[in-house]
């Protein structure tokens, strides 16, 4: 204990220093360590949250881009289909129109042919009638001087019969 006195150890001062340190420890704990550690933790949380959000945002963007691509592809497909459809329809319609036109033309042509034929027949008939009449007239005139009335009649009738028979 002598050595303690040499070094000036005083129980009062010793206790005072211990109490002082406890007080400082308490104050620093409340005023420095806890707030700073809390702040560090808070900042860590904020940064983590921010990073997470950024990651999520990136994912959402990627998804949106993919969706956009999908929609564009779908639209392209659809438009292609529509154009194809339209083309098909148009070609069908044109084919039909062509067909109709050809049919009509054929009909008209046939009609014309028939008419021409008829006309030709009529003409021929008329011509033959004319020829007959003419020949009868010629015959009558020519034989009127040669034969009597009776003979004439018989001859003409015979000629007519012949001509009509020929016909």
């Amino acid at each position: 204990m002598e050595i303690l006195k040499t070094f000036g150890v005083d129980p009062i001062l010793l206790v005072a220093q211990i109490i002082n340190f406890i007080v400082i420890l308490y104050i620093l704990k409340k005023l420095l360590y806890k707030p700073v550690m809390d702040m560090l933790k808070k900042r860590e949380d904020v940064i983590k949250e921010g990073l997470k959000q950024a990651e999520e945002g990136k994912l959402t963007l990627e998804k949106a881009l993919e969706e956009e691509k999908k929609i564009l592809k779908k639209a392209q497909d659809q438009s292609k289909k529509i154009v194809d459809n339209a083309n098909e329809q148009a070609s069908a319609v044109s084919k039909e129109i062509e067909e109709n036109a050809r049919k009509q033309a054929d009909k008209i042509l046939e009609e014309a042919k028939r008419q021409i034929e008829q006309e030709a027949k009529d003409t021929e008939k008329r011509l033959s009638e004319n020829v007959t009449n003419l020949s009868i007239d010629i015959l009558r005139k020519s034989i009127s001087e040669l034969f009597g009335e009776k003979e004439q009649k018989a001859l003409v009738e015979k000629a007519i019969r012949n001509i009509t028979k020929k016909k």
Partner: peptide
């Protein structure tokens, strides 16, 4: 300097 006083250093050590 308070650490040149054995009261302080002994107090700290005891605590």
């Amino acid at each position: 300097s308070t650490t040149t006083d054995l009261n302080t250093t002994l107090g700290l050590a005891i605590f």
